[in-house]
Nucleic acid binder design. Structure first.
Lengths: 351, 351
DNA sequence: TGTGCTGGTTTTAGCGTTCCAAAAGCATTG
DNA sequence: CAATGCTTTTGGAACGCTAAAACCAGCACA
């Protein structure tokens, strides 16, 4: 029955290595070994020490370990203010946190100032020896963090590849192109041929261009024309609404959108002309945000495997910590198409 | 020009108190004092030491400080898996993180197992002296954490009051009753009198009952009957849809819902009978989730001041750390009604 | 001249671990 | 029996910091 805990409130003062050692009749070092290198001890001794540790509810002090080993077992994550709700964050963070916990690491949050992360926060954490490594997310064009961290040999992993310049360090990302490609496949199999794409402005976002590319390659593969079928808009519902109109005017029977927000713009444009998503024109979104299944009709969308992304991030990071000079590993995960009511066969040509 | 940093990669090895002290020609303790109790030093000395600290880019090692002072300056937060998307988390976490940073504290995440937080994770963090305090959220009926933490004298603050038993410890919460009350006021001022409430099952959630109570009291204040105007449903869109029907059948011209999800159930029920939210029946949601303004028509909803909640949580926690035995402080913040297109005057009686 | 005070600085002594080298136990061997 | 190797255990020392006590002017006062 573990007596836990070594909190100061528990009578007898805190339980330390020395306390346990005295009680077990061994030296402190032996107790330390029982925990860190059990194979050094005679089985009998090990057993006795372990029992004492259990009885006394001993847990090593993280601060002392950190000081001695120069490793805090902490992973830093700079949390950015979400300008327009990033529905991705909480699932990702939970997955990362859980995977880290299982490996004896924890996540240390620090607030990044609005307007993009600066290096300052990262530097502070490093100098204070507070963290061993970083998880980055929300990486965009020209993000300086990777190069900076790499230069000083700090282990890190990014959720999101580098969109400009050469790749630096390990990353995990979701294959947007593969997602939109799958969306096109899905629509083609339903009988669609005039499939439009509604994305963000070219070059404004790596992920956006990637998603456009997947649509394009799938269309080409099926011998379908993409001329006049590509619309652009910022991630705002009114703008998306406006950008969707010409696509519909051009006779598209289906639209693949780079985000659920853009897909919603299509919904509006359709409603406006008395048409119904799904029945008259199919629509596929991206991200499978919580909103998607609340819409009428429920929106088909591409779900990112965020839990898996989180786990892979931690896996890569641990590997990097174990082998700082190993070759960089990069992982591309597939989004999965969640087909709902907004995708169906095209209406009959005469209708 | 700060030479930063004391990372081992920087030539000359890590910068410690001793290094700085030697360079400045004083004892290590004096450098420590320059940082922690500057008023002890002669202004001249202080200046010289500060300049040296700056030049060398010195930053104290957190681990050593923690070991010595027995205070980690870390606040624990158990992150729970979001079963059905908790759109609240990221904004709250960012606010907490930022406020903590400003006070020299940081947030340490740890993963709570699915199915509610257990005490185990909290105990581990405490025993390892990893954290000084906790922020709790997602508190529900019969949550054991507050009592447990209070018993061992661990400072904590909850986002969310205690819904059963006596209040324990400091908390910050959003006044749900005040929110639904305001929603009724808004609707009454638009001319509505038959205002229904669609909530969760009675007793299933403290927050839900609270929101119902606000509707009830506002109705009573205006001399309006609540008989047959209260619907119940779990937080699922189909269930909400079903629960909304009888309210509409009974002639409600407006519905206040306990969540945006429930409000969406009303949308569906209305569409089904060829009616339009806003034009025919007004609907108000709760939480102002990102979904709200994407809907057609855009959903009026009650926004929780999450940034403020986060900041207040940290403020209370710091106060508690400074004065462990001070009286508990409890803060109730007002949600704000975001009026959008789903609320308008009732249709003329004859129409 | 000694005594007490005050402000500024240093010395000492750990905080609880783990690293390192050395010691002890204990067989096996020359 | 001493020397050799092996496994198991131990005794400092150190990681970087700060609380507490000690120290040391310089000055006022008796």
């Amino acid at each position: 029955m573990p007596r836990s805990s070594n909190s100061p409130s528990a009578k007898g003062g805190p339980v330390t290595l020395a306390t346990v050692a005295r009680r077990a009749g061994v030296s402190p070092q032996t107790v330390s070994n029982a925990i860190n290198s059990p194979d050094l001890l005679r089985p009998e001794t090990l057993d006795r020490v372990r029992r004492t540790i259990d009885e006394m509810g001993y847990r090593p002090s993280r601060a002392a370990q950190t000081l001695r080993t120069r490793s805090s077992k902490l992973i830093g994550y700079g949390i950015q203010p979400s300008p327009f709700s990033y529905p991705v964050l909480d699932r990702f963070l939970h997955a990362v946190s859980q995977a880290a916990d299982e490996a004896g690491y924890r996540i240390l949050l620090f607030a990044c100032p609005p307007g993009g992360p600066t290096l300052e926060g990262y530097e502070e954490l490093l100098d204070q020896h507070e963290v061993d490594a970083f998880v980055l997310s929300g990486t965009e064009h020209g993000d300086p963090r990777q190069a900076w961290l790499a230069k000083r040999g700090v282990p890190f992993v990014s959720f999101g590849r580098m969109w400009s310049g050469r790749q630096i360090g390990d990353w995990v990302d979701v294959d947007g192109a593969s997602g939109t490609d799958a969306a096109v496949e899905h629509l083609v199999s339903l009988g669609h041929r005039r499939i439009a794409f509604l994305g963000w402005e070219r070059g404004s976002s790596g992920a956006g261009d990637d998603r456009a590319a997947g649509w394009q390659r799938a269309m080409r593969r099926h011998g379908l024309s993409t001329r006049g079928r590509r619309g652009q808009s910022v991630n705002d519902i009114d703008a998306a609404h406006a950008a969707a109109k010409p696509l519909l005017d051009a006779g598209a029977t289906a639209v693949v959108a780079a985000s659920d927000m853009l897909a919603l713009g299509c919904y509006r444009a359709l409603r406006e002309r008395g048409a119904a998503p799904g029945r008259d024109v199919s629509v596929v979104g991206f991200d499978d945000s919580p909103t998607a299944e609340l819409l009428s009709p429920e929106l088909s969308s591409l779900a990112q495997p965020l839990e898996q992304v989180g786990r892979e991030c931690v896996r890569l990071l641990l590997a990097r910590l174990a082998a700082p000079d190993a070759e960089a590993e990069r992982i591309l995960l597939e989004p999965s198409l969640v087909a709902r009511d907004s995708t169906a066969g095209p209406p009959p040509p005469g209708g």
